[in-house]
């Protein structure tokens, strides 16, 4: 229980602490994540060797991870830490996904077959401050690296932010990245709480499209949509 609580805080420091109460999803709690039926199916936690079955299983896992991270508004996960969360560990059923199998699931999500719904974070340089904060111990790059979970892909995020800017009439206005991610104005939006690295990447998509311009120095960038 202690390990779970710590992992939850380290995982998503920006997430509201209310999610930490949902260690065991109870159907009565409306805020609790509703797990799919397969979550209570023991073989779901053993990766199947037969290709068609395996493919179907991986797809189910991918959908589960996406739904889980969306519900908890998580944008990235650390594999090692996530293993002991309810996502990969069904405590009532006494079943858990092994590290190797979980890695295979994430690899699948990263592949074209998995619709590129995840991406390993290989260079921690830009997100070093986030990583340092979440994983002070370090040395986790090999064992259980972090990965993005794209329950929305970067271009979808770009569309979303653009339409939000459009709907709130902020075209031509310079917004800081912090404003977009953490500001009160974006509270309730799906991209609220997005990590800076992912946000700048999503804005990069908009820049490429010629809809926005990013300027400013490291750590204090601003963006202007037009």
């Amino acid at each position: 229980m202690t390990s779970f609580a710590s992992s939850n805080t380290t995982l998503a420091p920006s997430v509201a602490p209310s999610t930490s109460s949902s260690t065991t999803p109870s159907p009565t709690d409306p805020t609790a994540f509703a797990y799919p039926a397969l979550y209570n199916y023991p073989p779901f936690f053993t990766l199947q060797p037969i290709l068609p079955t395996r493919h179907s299983q991986l797809l189910s896992w991918s959908l589960l991870i996406q739904a889980y991270t969306r519900h908890h508004a998580l944008f990235s996960l650390s594999l090692i830490d996530a293993l002991s969360t309810p996502l990969f560990h069904n405590r009532p059923l006494h079943r858990r996904l092994s590290l190797r199998d979980a890695r295979a699931v994430i690899d699948y999500m990263c592949s074209k077959d998995g619709d590129m719904r995840a991406e390993w974070i290989t260079t921690p340089s830009t997100a070093s401050n986030v990583l340092k904060k979440s994983n002070p111990s370090g040395g986790d790059e090999e064992g259980g690296g972090r990965f993005w979970v794209f329950w929305r892909k970067p271009d979808e995020w770009a569309n979303l932010i653009e339409s939000w800017v459009d709907s709130t009439g902020q075209k031509g206005v310079v917004l800081t990245l912090y404003e977009l991610a953490e500001g009160d104005a974006t509270r309730g939006q799906e991209f609220h709480g997005m990590e800076a690295e992912l946000l700048s990447r999503c804005l990069g998509v908009s820049v490429k499209r010629g809809r926005a311009q990013v300027f400013g120095a490291e750590g204090g960038e601003g963006v202007k949509f037009f």
Binding site: L38, Y41, S56, S60, L64
Partner: peptide, 15 residues
């Protein structure tokens, strides 16, 4: 019994 293939969508939330 293989429920992984037969009911892959059952209970999964639609994104």
């Amino acid at each position: 019994e293989n429920w992984l293939v037969h009911t892959p969508e059952e209970g999964i939330l639609t994104i």
